[in-house]
Simulated scan of single mutants.
Amino acid sequence: MEKINKNILNQVITLRNPVSYKGNYGKILIIAGSTHFGGAAILCSSAAVASGAGLVTVATVPEKFTAINTRIPEAMTIDYQNKNDLLEAIQNNTVIAIGPGLGISSVAKGLVKVVLKEATKNQTVIIDASALTLIAEEKIPLTTNAKIIMTPHQGEWERLSTLKIHEQNELNNIDELHKLNPKAALVLKKHHSEIYYQGKVLQITAGNAGMATGGMGDTLTGIMAGFIGQFGFSIETISAALLIHSYIADKLNKKHYVILPSLLIEKLPKYMASFSYENGHYLS
Rank of each mutant, 00 (worst) to 15 (best):
N69P: 08
N69V: 11
A50F: 14
A41T: 04
A40R: 07
T66D: 15
I30K: 03
V58F: 07
V61D: 00
A59T: 11
L43A: 14
A59P: 06
P62F: 10
F65D: 09
G54N: 06
A59R: 01
G38N: 03
A67K: 09
N69F: 12
G38M: 00
T60C: 03
P62M: 12
A67E: 13
G33P: 05
L29V: 12
K64R: 15
S51A: 08
I28A: 02
G33H: 00
S45H: 02
S46L: 07
A32H: 03
V58M: 03
A59S: 12
L43V: 13
T60Y: 05
S51Q: 10
A59Q: 06
V61Y: 02
V61K: 01
I68W: 01
V58I: 14
C44S: 14
N69C: 13
T35K: 14
T57I: 08
A41P: 07
V49C: 08
G39N: 01
S46A: 14
I28L: 11
A67G: 08
L29K: 08
L43T: 04
E63A: 12
F37A: 06
V49T: 06
L55M: 15
V49K: 04
A40S: 15
S34Y: 05
A32N: 07
I30Y: 10
S51P: 06
A48Q: 02
S34P: 09
E63G: 04
A41S: 13
T57G: 08
F65Y: 14
I30Q: 09
E63T: 15
V61M: 04
F37P: 00
A48T: 09
I31W: 07
A41E: 04
V61E: 04
H36W: 07
K64T: 12
F65H: 11
T70P: 10
A53T: 12
P62E: 10
G52D: 06
S45Y: 01
A40T: 02
G33L: 01
L55K: 13
V56C: 05
G39K: 02
A40C: 11
V61R: 02
S34A: 10
A47R: 05
L29F: 10
C44Q: 12
F65T: 08
V56I: 14
I30E: 04
G38P: 00
V61W: 00
V56M: 09
K64V: 11
V56P: 03
L43C: 07
T35D: 14
I28G: 01
A67D: 12
K64E: 15
F37R: 00
T35Y: 14
A53P: 11
F65M: 10
N69R: 14
A47F: 08
A50N: 13
G54M: 03
E63P: 11
A41L: 03
T66Q: 15
P62N: 14
I28F: 01
A41K: 01
T66A: 15
S46K: 11
A67W: 06
L55R: 12
T60K: 02
A48V: 09
T60E: 07
S51Y: 00
T35G: 11
S46P: 00
G39H: 05
H36G: 13
I68Y: 07
A47D: 05
V49L: 10
A47T: 13
S46D: 08
A50I: 03
H36F: 14
L55W: 11
E63K: 12
V61T: 13
E63N: 14
G38H: 03
C44N: 11
E63Q: 13
S46C: 00
G54I: 03
